[in-house]
Computed example of a mutant assay.
Amino acid sequence: MSTEEQTGHYSITPRRVSFDWDGTPLHWIPDEPVATHVINVLHLLLPAGERWFVKVFKEALPMVSDPVLLKDVKGFMGQEATHSVQHSHVLDHLAAQRLATEDFTRHVDFLFEKLLGETPPFNAPVPPGEWLRFRLSIIAAIEQFTAVLGDWVLRAEGLDRAGADEIMLDLLRWHGAEEVEHRAVAFDMYQHCGGSRLPRYARRIEGMVVTTPVLLWLWAWGTAYLIRHDPELAGRLRYSLGEHNRAVAKGLLPTWRELGAAIPRYFRRSYHPSQEGSLRRAVDYLATSPAARAAAGAVGRAALS
Results as ranks from 00 to 15, higher is better:
R51L: 11
V148W: 00
D92L: 11
P231L: 09
G297A: 12
Y10R: 14
R203Q: 15
E232K: 08
L45M: 14
G222R: 01
T36C: 08
A262G: 04
P231R: 08
E181V: 14
L149I: 09
M189E: 06
I142Q: 09
E32F: 00
W21R: 06
V126T: 11
D284W: 00
L159Q: 06
Y201I: 14
A303C: 04
E258C: 00
V68S: 03
S278A: 04
E4H: 08
G207N: 06
S240V: 07
L61E: 14
Y239M: 14
A156G: 02
R203V: 13
L70M: 05
Y190S: 11
H43Y: 08
L26H: 08
K250F: 01
M1W: 02
I39A: 11
P213M: 06
A35N: 02
D170N: 06
A147M: 07
L154W: 01
A141E: 04
G23K: 09
I39P: 03
L241K: 03
G235H: 06
Q6C: 04
E102Q: 15
A60T: 09
L233A: 05
G176K: 08
E178M: 12
A262E: 01
N123H: 10
G300C: 02
A184V: 04
H107P: 00
T119G: 01
T146E: 06
F76G: 07
G260M: 11
T7G: 01
T7F: 12
T101V: 15
P128Y: 03
E157L: 03
P127S: 12
M1Y: 02
T105Q: 11
A95L: 05
K250P: 00
F76Q: 10
N123L: 09
H272Y: 05
S278K: 02
L253N: 04
R16E: 15
V38D: 03
G49F: 10
M77Y: 07
V126D: 01
R98C: 04
L99P: 09
R155G: 01
R161S: 11
I39V: 15
P127T: 05
T255S: 03
D92Y: 03
R280S: 12
E166D: 10
V248T: 10
A184R: 05
I227Q: 05
L237C: 03
P67N: 03
W28Q: 10
F110N: 11
T255E: 00
D109V: 09
